[in-house]
């Protein structure tokens, strides 16, 4: 059963990579941004179907670190440096949010 699921996942990933790198005709940076967006699709799978609340908090925390890389690539394509400002603020807010979520999950109040 586990090997069967592994083969299905491999098929999905190979299909995406083939479509992205050989059929889609765009700039190379846009192809790489598509790969990062595909990664965040997996993260959203964990947010939707995570069995416990802690899984969802982990997924949101990871999403914040992925987005800073994606925004750096977008800033490289458009040659504008303010994309990095957006990424830094996003990472800062997701760090504070995951600390607050962890405190609520532990059962303490926020000003403890």
């Amino acid at each position: 059963m586990r090997v069967f699921r592994w083969i299905i996942g491999l098929a999905i990933i190979v299909a995406f990579m083939y479509g992205n790198f050989f059929i889609y005709s765009g700039d190379i940076l846009f192809k790489l941004i598509n790969v990062v967006l595909f990664c965040s699709l997996f993260v959203l799978f964990r947010v939707l179907f995570g069995p416990t609340a802690a899984d969802r908090i982990v997924a949101v925390d990871i999403l914040g670190i992925l987005i800073i890389g994606m925004l750096a690539l977008m800033g490289l394509f458009y040659d504008q440096s303010f994309f990095m400002d957006v990424g830094l603020i996003w990472a800062l807010l997701s760090f504070v949010a995951s600390l607050a979520f962890a405190k609520i999950l532990e059962g303490r109040s926020l000003d403890d």
């Binding site: 908090i57 925390d61 995951s98 600390l99 962890a102 532990e106």
Partner: peptide
């Protein structure tokens, strides 16, 4: 943040 989430869970 990984340390905080692990301890809380």
């Amino acid at each position: 943040s990984a340390h905080a989430i692990a301890r809380a869970s």
